[in-house]
């Protein structure tokens, strides 16, 4: 028997309710996409957590590198005006 390390790794995304986005739930090993879906069903939705599942080969995901954290994210930290809460709502504005 092959061990699970011979099987590719899959990332599992579960949509918990209609109208919500798929959210990352975890990962698992499976020989192919169809079996990955079934394993995901058993591992992540057996307590009625989902209405839809995506599985994606982990190798297909390109992730941002921790080394690039500062240029990627830190420069947004001192720009509070990018948040809507930065602005005061003038008196008299309705329907907001």
């Amino acid at each position: 028997m092959s061990s699970s390390t011979d099987w590719p790794l899959w990332e599992v995304f579960v949509r918990s309710r209609r109208g919500l986005s798929h959210t990352h739930a975890g990962s698992l090993h499976a020989p192919d996409a169809e079996m990955a879906l079934r394993n995901a069903r058993d591992l992540y939705t057996r307590r009625n957590e989902g209405v839809s599942i995506w599985v994606v080969p982990s190798s297909a995901i390109t992730a941002s590198s921790p080394d690039e954290k500062d240029p990627f994210f830190a420069s947004a930290a001192d720009k509070p005006y990018r948040h809507p809460t930065f602005y005061e709502i003038p008196e008299g504005v309705k329907h907001l």
């Binding site: 061990s3 099987w7 090993h29 499976a30 394993n39 058993d42 591992l43």
Partner: peptide, 12 residues
């Protein structure tokens, strides 16, 4: 079971 994922499937 041969792999953890399959063990869960059979137990289910």
């Amino acid at each position: 079971a041969p792999v953890l994922e399959e063990e869960v499937a059979l137990a289910n």
